[in-house]
């Protein structure tokens, strides 16, 4: 189970690291090398984003990665096959992140079945609140997968509890308003928000949006259980190439 994996891991480390990549960006071969470098450098869990043409919650960096991946011919089928290969090769939990249309067009139940077949542990679907997610929640439950819900700084406390009642594995706390990739202030305000999140749920808390270096992660120690790095590695790959990923992850000092 995702949650027990996280709890066990937390016995050895103060904070875990989750990374986010876009499948097929810059290419599937590169995606494999990036994952390999990340796992070897001590990443604890990973989000694999299946690209979508309208990634509404993503900022420029991840948006462009989605578009490039699609223009090079990524398909959902290829993403599923590739992820199956990855899971056979690396022994950490992998999650899918995508927008609801990808699941909906595939067939929600069939998609969950396929996730379970290839060994994906859970999914983050940012445009699917529980109110719209009955089929998804049922399918995830049937295949023993974790539907991961998102808290945001605009989420009232009561709604946090409501979301947590549907969530499994972990809760993804968005650090600030806005889309992925913009700057975040790691400040006392974030402390208050995270302690509010902590009160609302017993699930492990991941914090993402704007996390980009060792300083940010050190700030989160003792406040969140998992730090999430997304746009920053993609930005690095864009400027310096896939080769630098391992060293970057090591520089975060989490292993």
């Amino acid at each position: 189970m995702l949650e027990s994996y996280i709890r066990n891991r937390l016995k050895e480390k103060e904070i875990l690291l989750m990374t986010h990549i876009v499948l097929g960006y810059p290419s599937f071969e590169d995606s494999f090398r990036i994952i390999e470098a990340m796992v070897n450098a001590g990443v604890d869990l990973m989000e694999l984003q299946i690209p979508f043409s309208e990634p509404m919650a993503d900022g420029a960096v991840i948006l462009h990665a989605n578009q490039k991946s699609l223009s090079k011919g990524s398909t959902v089928k290829k993403c599923l096959e590739f992820s199956g290969e990855v899971i056979k090769n690396f022994d950490i939990p992998f999650l899918f992140m995508s927008y609801y249309n990808i699941l909906y067009k595939y067939g929600v139940e069939g998609f969950a079945e396929e996730m379970s077949n290839i060994g994906i542990k859970g999914a983050i679907v940012p445009d699917l609140p529980p109110e719209e997610g009955e089929d998804y929640i049922n399918a995830m439950q049937k295949y023993n997968l974790s539907p991961i819900y998102i808290f945001s700084p605009t989420t009232p406390y009561e709604r946090m509890k409501y979301l947590a009642s549907y969530g499994k594995g972990l809760i993804y706390c968005v650090a600030r308003k806005g889309v992925t990739g913009a700057e975040t202030q790691f400040s006392n305000q974030l402390d208050d928000y995270l302690s509010q999140c902590r009160k609302a749920t017993d699930l492990p808390l991941a914090l993402g949006f704007g996390v980009k270096n060792k300083g940010d992660i050190d700030f989160l120690k003792g406040k969140a259980d998992i730090a999430v790095i997304g746009s920053e590695t993609i930005r690095l790959i864009d400027s310096d190439g896939v080769g630098v990923v391992g060293d970057f992850i090591k520089s975060l000092g989490i292993s």
Binding site: M56, A57, Y100, P126, D127, L128, P129, E131, E132, Y149, I150, F151, S152, P153, T154, T155, P156, R159, L163, V174, K177, G178
Partner: peptide, 12 residues
Amino acid sequence: GGAYIPEILVST
């Protein structure tokens, strides 16, 4: 129809 919105916009 429906409202398939990211959590950050639910209150809005």
